[in-house]
Deep mutational scan, measured.
Amino acid sequence: MDVFMKGLSKAKEGVVAAAEKTKQGVAEAAGKTKEGVLYVGSKTKEGVVHGVATVAEKTKEQVTNVGGAVVTGVTAVAQKTVEGAGSIAAATGFVKKDQLGKNEEGAPQEGILEDMPVDPDNEAYEMPSEEGYQDYEPEA
């Protein structure tokens, strides 16, 4: 019985440690998101679009440190934060509304985080759909 109880105690310690790591990862992701939003706020009209992409990228980098179902929630929060940063930029006159959601080359930025393969159960990952990809044929 002692062996059984000791095993359960060790398992509990492992769960607590994993929860603490997840909590730490979420806190880091939130900190990076805040950094990115402050970065966007300090940019001029020309830099705002690039700044919004930076927020998304920093958040995406930190999301990889967070495991399990938390990833889905962090990704949703990050996307809403990026959308909010863009709205703030438009409201303050840093950028025109028609410039939001495009990178410096004018290509749409939507789907940055949505296409990231995420499995809350950590069982399997699927690649994003290939609808947006084109076949590449090298020139002879």
Rank of each mutant, 00 (worst) to 15 (best):
M1I: 00
V3A: 04
F4C: 02
F4D: 00
F4L: 12
F4I: 11
F4V: 01
M5C: 02
M5A: 03
M5G: 01
K6D: 05
K6Y: 05
K6W: 03
K6I: 10
K6S: 02
G7R: 13
G7Q: 15
G7F: 11
L8N: 00
L8W: 09
S9D: 03
S9G: 13
S9L: 03
S9A: 05
S9T: 03
K10G: 01
K10D: 02
A11P: 00
A11R: 00
E13F: 03
E13Y: 04
G14C: 10
G14Y: 10
G14H: 13
G14I: 15
G14N: 08
V15W: 05
V15T: 01
V16D: 01
V16W: 13
A17E: 09
A17L: 10
A17S: 13
A17P: 00
A19I: 04
A19T: 02
E20Y: 10
E20R: 03
K21G: 00
K21E: 01
K21T: 10
K21F: 05
T22E: 00
T22G: 05
K23Q: 09
K23G: 02
K23I: 01
K23R: 12
Q24S: 07
G25K: 13
G25V: 15
G25M: 15
V26G: 01
A27D: 02
A27G: 07
A27T: 03
E28K: 12
E28S: 14
A29N: 02
A29K: 04
A29Y: 12
A29E: 00
A29L: 09
A30I: 13
G31D: 04
G31H: 08
G31T: 07
G31Y: 14
K32W: 14
T33N: 00
T33M: 15
T33P: 00
K34E: 00
K34V: 08
K34P: 00
E35H: 11
E35L: 05
E35W: 14
E35N: 12
E35I: 14
G36Y: 08
G36S: 15
G36K: 13
V37H: 00
V37N: 00
V37G: 01
L38K: 11
L38C: 09
L38I: 03
L38H: 04
Y39S: 10
Y39F: 11
V40P: 00
V40I: 14
V40H: 03
V40R: 01
G41N: 03
S42T: 09
S42A: 12
S42P: 01
S42R: 15
S42Q: 08
K43N: 04
K45G: 04
K45N: 02
E46I: 06
E46Q: 07
E46W: 09
G47K: 08
G47P: 06
V48Q: 00
V48C: 08
V48A: 05
V48P: 00
V49L: 15
V49T: 08
V49Q: 08
G51H: 13
G51R: 06
G51L: 13
V52T: 01
A53I: 10
T54E: 02
T54I: 13
V55H: 01
A56S: 15
A56F: 13
E57V: 04
E57Q: 04
E57I: 12
K58V: 11
K58G: 01
K58P: 01
T59I: 03
T59Y: 13
T59M: 02
E61T: 11
E61H: 08
E61S: 08
Q62L: 11
Q62R: 12
Q62H: 10
Q62F: 10
Q62A: 06
Q62P: 03
V63T: 03
T64V: 08
T64I: 12
T64N: 06
T64G: 04
T64C: 10
N65G: 08
N65E: 07
V66T: 03
V66I: 14
G67L: 15
G67S: 08
G67H: 09
G68H: 11
G68W: 11
G68F: 10
A69H: 05
A69E: 02
V70C: 03
V70Q: 01
V71N: 02
V71L: 11
V71T: 06
V71K: 09
T72K: 09
G73S: 09
G73D: 01
G73K: 10
V74F: 11
V74T: 07
T75N: 08
T75Y: 15
T75K: 13
T75C: 06
T75E: 02
A76G: 08
V77S: 01
V77K: 02
A78T: 08
A78P: 02
A78C: 06
A78S: 03
Q79I: 10
Q79L: 14
Q79S: 11
Q79R: 10
Q79V: 08
T81I: 08
E83S: 04
E83Q: 11
E83F: 07
E83A: 09
E83R: 09
G84E: 05
A85P: 05
A85L: 14
G86S: 06
S87T: 14
S87D: 13
S87V: 10
I88N: 02
I88T: 03
A89N: 02
A90C: 15
A90N: 03
A90Q: 09
A90V: 15
A90P: 07
A91W: 09
A91L: 14
T92L: 12
T92A: 13
G93N: 03
G93W: 10
G93I: 06
G93C: 10
F94W: 09
F94E: 03
F94H: 09
V95W: 09
V95Q: 12
V95L: 09
K96R: 10
K96F: 13
K96E: 09
K97S: 07
K97C: 05
D98H: 02
D98E: 10
Q99H: 11
Q99Y: 10
L100Y: 01
L100W: 01
G101F: 12
G101Q: 11
K102Q: 01
K102L: 10
N103W: 08
N103L: 06
N103K: 06
N103M: 10
N103I: 06
E104I: 08
E104V: 12
E104F: 14
E104Y: 14
E105Q: 11
E105P: 02
G106L: 10
G106H: 04
G106S: 10
A107W: 09
A107V: 10
A107Q: 04
P108A: 06
P108Y: 06
P108M: 07
P108N: 08
P108I: 14
P108D: 08
Q109E: 11
Q109W: 06
Q109D: 08
E110V: 12
E110A: 14
E110I: 08
E110C: 06
E110Q: 05
E110K: 07
E110T: 15
G111K: 10
I112Q: 10
I112C: 05
I112R: 12
L113H: 15
E114A: 02
E114C: 04
D115F: 07
D115W: 03
M116K: 03
M116V: 01
M116R: 03
P117R: 05
V118E: 06
V118K: 12
V118S: 07
P120M: 06
P120Q: 11
P120E: 09
P120K: 09
P120H: 05
P120C: 05
D121R: 07
D121S: 14
D121M: 10
N122T: 05
N122V: 08
N122S: 06
N122G: 03
N122P: 04
E123F: 07
E123N: 13
A124L: 06
A124C: 09
A124Q: 06
Y125H: 11
Y125E: 04
Y125A: 06
Y125P: 14
E126R: 10
E126P: 11
M127T: 03
M127D: 06
P128M: 13
P128C: 05
P128D: 10
P128V: 03
P128G: 07
P128W: 07
S129A: 13
S129Q: 08
E130K: 10
E130W: 06
E130G: 11
E131T: 11
E131G: 02
E131I: 07
E131M: 02
G132S: 06
Y133N: 15
Y133L: 13
Y133G: 08
Q134M: 08
Q134P: 06
D135A: 03
D135R: 08
Y136P: 03
Y136T: 12
Y136C: 05
E137K: 03
E137A: 08
E137T: 06
E137R: 14
E137Q: 04
P138Y: 04
P138F: 07
P138I: 09
P138T: 08
P138M: 04
E139P: 09
E139F: 07
E139K: 08
E139D: 08
A140V: 10
A140P: 09
